[in-house]
């Protein structure tokens, strides 16, 4: 409880001043004066003519796509050509084509789903310039998109300029935070070197090669940008990525602080901090419910150990790193999947069935703080649907922030919401009934189904964590999840930007006694109910075939695997 309170409560407190700073950085009150003005001129000069004009939602969305297509190509080239490029002391060769596509899509979309082991496949140049660079700019894309959305909802038809916003987010928010956290990590014992792998002789006289590299720098933005891609294959279970209890605490806080601060930044830009407080509260309730469920379910022993002559009252310790404490595994599993981070400090495949359901719920809802910037954008989609339902229930035209929410906005919101469920459920169904998925499983039955369901959930939520136990570095998996990651990244940004552009042009309506308040407990309960009902209606059938069926089989037979 103390650990959960320290990490969740402490980070929630720190997110308040960070949100205030992010508002200053992304949406300065006087963008042409003082320090903000000098920075704006600097960022404008860096890009040139493209950054001088304020952009309508369509121009903003197109700029975002052009920029992300460009970083996709650059990242792709680094991985395809790494054998010819410098900073390759261990002589890494080019990756297979579909794996390059998957990895470039993964890091461009802020997912960091990894079908490779970094220390085996990537040169230092690929890690730093192909991947770590994308961890900054893909996260900055999410923050920029949220700032643009908020400006539109505040009534500004020009949403800002994407090229200026993405620089503000990268250089003023993510870079300073990453420098701070990287320093803490280096002090905490993470390697930070450009020397190649260490070659040592063990006490038994065996030659051993120990991979290392610029890990502290890589890890800081991995966590802060809700990226999640590890320097090493085992991610944050690796002693060089996460050596101690304290690096685990810092990592956990780094995972959720920027998504939390994004809610406050949103509230400040739209000028409705009480509304942001209600949204923050709804997210916190859902987050704590998942943490409570995961820690509770994981306190039961794993069925794999049933009948063995070992202590059965210490909970499920399979796949855990005990140097962090027993609750740290399920806590991290929830934090990393609630925020679209995707890093892991325990083996998710080894979680008890119902514990494994909690991370999946996090990825299905994808808005309980969510990814940097995009978590709040996803919550905005739920808000549009909630105010629409509330309006229908009382027979009034739905309004949000004093502007009417009409059929077009609701259709776009529903489309964005359906896209997420479509990618997960259709992808899972296709791979569950074909050798593309079935032949790559490590487990049969409901647990095998969960592995496929988790992989598509992770791809569509731009999370990047893996249930593992899945042989996912195949051409079908690489192509399917790569395509899903790109589509599921940008569709839920484009459509809300279109809604914001549409609402910005509407006349503000007068506040009357019949106006739906969005700053009170009633709205919070309505929003919470909307999220739960929509989430359950969409994903409960799939959950029953996977983790719930596995749990019931355990109860009935003792083992479902």
């Amino acid at each position: 409880m103390l650990l959960i309170g320290l990490i969740v409560g402490g980070t929630a407190l720190l997110s308040w001043p960070l949100g205030r700073y992010m508002k200053w950085a992304l949406d300065p009150q006087a963008p042409d004066a003082g320090a903000a003005g000098r920075l704006t001129r600097l960022f404008t000069a860096a890009v040139g003519a493209a950054s001088r004009q304020p952009q309508h939602w369509k121009q903003y969305a197109v700029s975002m796509l052009v920029f992300n297509a460009a970083i996709f190509v650059v990242s792709f080239a680094f991985m395809a050509l790494q054998q010819y490029l410098p900073l390759n002391p261990d002589g890494k060769t080019a990756l297979e084509g579909s794996l390059i596509f998957n990895t470039a899509a993964s890091f461009t979309s802020n997912t960091n789903l990894q079908h490779y082991s970094g220390e085996v496949a990537m040169s230092y140049l690929s890690q730093l310039c192909g991947l770590m660079w994308l961890q900054f700019v893909s996260a900055a894309t999410g923050i920029a998109a949220l700032a643009a959305l908020a400006r539109g909802l505040a009534g500004k038809p020009a949403l800002g300029n994407f090229y200026v916003d993405v620089q503000r987010a990268a250089f003023l928010v993510l870079l300073p935070l990453a420098l701070l956290v990287a320093t803490l990590f280096a002090v905490g014992g993470l390697p930070m070197t450009l020397q190649g792998a260490a070659k040592v002789t063990t006490l038994e006289g065996i030659e051993q090669v120990i991979a290392r590299g610029p890990v502290a720098a890589f890890l800081a933005i991995k966590q802060l940008g809700t990226n999640g891609g590890g320097f090493f294959g085992p991610n944050s279970t690796h002693p060089f990525e996460n050596p101690t209890f304290w690096t685990n605490v810092i990592s956990s806080m780094a995972i959720i602080i920027v998504p939390m601060a994004c809610v406050w930044m949103y509230g400040r830009i739209i000028g409705r901090m009480r509304h942001a407080g209600v949204v923050f509260g709804v997210m916190m309730v859902l987050l704590l419910a998942k943490i409570g469920g995961a820690v509770s379910f994981e306190s039961e022993p794993t069925q794999a150990f049933a009948g063995l002559a070992i202590e059965q009252d210490v909970g499920n310790l399979e796949g855990k790193e005990l140097r962090f404490g027993t609750a740290a595994g399920p806590l991290w599993a929830v934090l990393t999947t609630s925020t679209s981070n995707g890093s892991v400090n325990a083996m998710h495949d080894s979680l008890n069935p119902l514990t494994g359901l909690m991370p999946m719920i996090g990825m299905w809802l994808n808005a309980t703080y969510g990814g940097v910037g995009v978590g709040m954008i996803n919550m905005f989609i739920y808000i549009v649907i909630a105010v629409f339902l509330a309006g229908m229930m009382v027979g009034r035209t739905p309004e949000y922030l004093n502007r009417r929410v009409e059929a077009r906005e609701v259709k776009l919101a529903v489309l964005a919401l359906l896209a997420h469920g479509f990618f997960i459920l259709v992808g899972t169904a296709v791979f569950a009934v074909t050798p593309w998925g079935a032949a790559t499983l490590n487990n049969t039955g409901p647990h095998g189904f969960s592995e496929i369901l988790y992989e598509f959930s992770s791809a569509s939520a731009n999370n990047g964590s893996g249930f593992e136990g899945l042989g996912d570095n195949t051409v079908p998996w690489n192509l399917a999840t790569g395509t899903v990651m790109l589509l599921a990244r940008f569709i839920p940004i484009i459509l809300p930007l279109a809604i914001a552009g549409s609402m910005a042009r509407k006349r503000a309506t007068a506040v009357t006694a019949g106006t739906l308040g969005v700053e009170n407990l009633t709205f919070g309960v309505m929003l919470l109910g909307t999220i739960l009902f929509l989430g359950a209606l969409t994903f409960f059938p799939a959950a029953t075939l996977g983790p719930i069926a596995e749990h019931l089989l355990y109860m009935a037979e003792g083992s479902g695997r």
């Binding site: 297509a69 190509v73 792709f76 395509t483 279109a498």
Partner: peptide, 30 residues
């Protein structure tokens, strides 16, 4: 250079651009 996979990625971005264009055409200009 596995060019086909690079082109696939760019085709997905083109598809997303198409989505922007289609949604923009549904704007009523109210």
């Amino acid at each position: 250079m596995p060019l086909a996979y690079l082109l696939l990625g760019l085709a997905i971005f083109a598809l997303l651009y198409g989505l922007v264009a289609v949604v923009a055409r549904t704007e009523t200009g109210e």
